[in-house]
Design a binder for these strands. Structure first.
Length: 313
DNA sequence: AACCCGGGGAC
DNA sequence: GTCCCAGGGTT
C-alpha cells in the first residue's frame, strides 16, 4: 500500500478547520435541529432547490405541521401540495414531492429510503438531493455537491474565482477527495462546505477576511485571480417571459377550487401565443388539467361546473 | 451539453 | 437592470 492517499497529500485536513468553524458558528436552521427527521430533511431539500433559505423556512414549517409523514402527504391530492407550495417557485417541485411521497408510501413502507440509489429512483430527486438526504438525514458518508460546494472547491482547492460549469462525475470526485473518513465528520464537512459558500465564500463579495480556511485557500494564495473561464449564459429576463405567464396562471389556479376559464386566462396576459404556450406547458407538466371540454368529455366531470383548467388531483 | 422551469431580494 | 439562489428533468 502507498503511504498516503492522494487526498491526504493534496488537501491536508481541510475538514478540521472547516468542521470546527461549522460547529462553532453554523446558522441555527430548522433542518439542523436534532431529531428533525428524514422526511423533514427531504422536504427541506426539495424546497431549497433554487429557493433561498429565508423563503423556505416558513413554508417548510407549515408543510410539516400539515403533513408530518410521507404517508400524510401521499393521502391528499397533488393539488393540495401545489397550493401549499404557494410562491416558492418551480411548482413542478411540489408535484414531484407529492409523487415521491406516494412512492415512499407504496414502495418503502412510508420510510424515507437510506440508500442513494433508492433515493435517486424517487421523482424529483437527483444527484444532489439523494446524497444530501443520505448524508444529513442518516449520517452516511457520501460526497454532497451543491452550488456552494462547487464554488468553495473552485476557490480553496483549484485557486479559481468561480467553478467550471457543473460536471457530475468530476464534481463528485473532487468532493470525495476532500471528504474525511469518519461518517460523522464527513456529514459535517458536507454541511460545513455548503455553509461556508452560503455565508462567507459567497458568489459576490466573499468575506475572505473572516474565512476559517483562508490560510490554506489556493485562491487567496494566488492573489485572487479574476475568473477567465467560460461565462455562464446571461439569464433571460423574467419580465415578459413565458415563465411569468405560467406563474400568473398558476397563481390563478391556486386561488380557487373552481375551473379557471379561458376568458379568465385571457385577462391575465395579452399575448395569445404566449398564453397558449404556457397552458400547453402546464398541461404537459401535469400542473393543470383541462375539465369540461366537449371533445374529451368525462361523464363524471362534464357539466359539473363549466369548462376550464384546474390543479391536478 | 443545452434548455426549460418561478419568484424574490441584494447589489 | 443584473445576478444569484442547498437542482432536476427532458431532449
Amino acid at each position: 500500500m502507498t503511504a498516503l492517499a492522494p487526498t491526504e497529500i493534496s488537501s491536508p485536513d481541510l475538514h478540521v478547520a472547516l468542521n470546527a468553524w461549522f460547529r462553532r458558528e453554523a446558522r441555527d436552521l430548522p433542518w439542523r435541529r436534532a431529531g428533525f427527521g428524514a422526511w423533514g430533511i427531504l422536504v427541506s431539500e426539495f424546497m431549497l432547490q433554487q429557493t433561498p433559505v429565508a423563503r423556505v423556512i416558513p413554508r417548510l414549517e407549515d408543510w410539516l405541521e400539515r403533513w408530518p409523514t410521507p404517508d400524510a402527504l401521499a393521502a391528499v391530492p397533488a393539488s393540495e401540495a401545489v397550493r401549499a407550495w404557494a410562491t416558492l417557485g418551480y411548482p413542478r417541485r411540489a408535484l414531484w414531492l407529492h409523487a415521491a411521497a406516494v412512492q415512499i408510501s407504496e414502495r418503502h413502507g412510508g420510510v424515507v429510503p437510506h440508500d442513494v440509489d433508492a433515493l435517486l429512483e424517487l421523482t424529483g430527486i437527483g444527484d444532489y438531493t439523494a446524497r444530501a438526504v443520505a448524508a444529513f438525514a442518516y449520517g452516511h458518508r457520501h460526497p454532497v455537491v451543491d452550488t456552494n460546494t462547487r464554488r468553495v472547491i473552485a476557490r480553496s482547492v483549484a485557486g479559481q474565482g468561480e467553478p467550471l460549469p457543473p460536471a457530475r462525475t468530476r464534481d463528485l470526485e473532487a468532493m470525495e477527495a476532500l471528504l474525511p473518513r469518519a461518517e460523522t465528520e464527513a456529514a459535517v464537512f458536507n454541511a460545513a462546505t455548503m455553509e461556508l459558500g452560503a455565508v462567507v465564500c459567497t458568489a459576490r463579495n466573499p468575506h475572505c477576511d473572516v474565512c476559517p480556511i483562508r490560510n490554506s485557500c489556493a485562491w487567496r494564495a494566488a492573489g485572487y485571480p479574476v475568473y477567465d473561464g467560460p461565462r455562464k449564459a446571461v439569464q433571460k429576463k423574467f419580465e415578459g417571459s413565458d415563465r411569468q405567464v405560467r406563474g400568473l396562471i398558476m397563481a390563478e389556479l391556486r386561488s380557487t377550487h373552481r375551473p379557471v376559464t379561458d376568458a379568465e386566462i385571457t385577462g391575465l396576459w395579452d399575448d395569445a401565443p404566449q398564453r397558449e404556450r404556457a397552458i400547453a406547458g402546464l398541461l404537459a407538466d401535469g400542473l393543470a388539467v383541462a375539465v369540461g371540454q366537449r371533445r374529451t368529455s368525462e361523464p363524471g366531470r362534464t357539466g359539473e361546473s363549466g369548462r376550464g383548467y384546474v390543479l391536478p388531483d
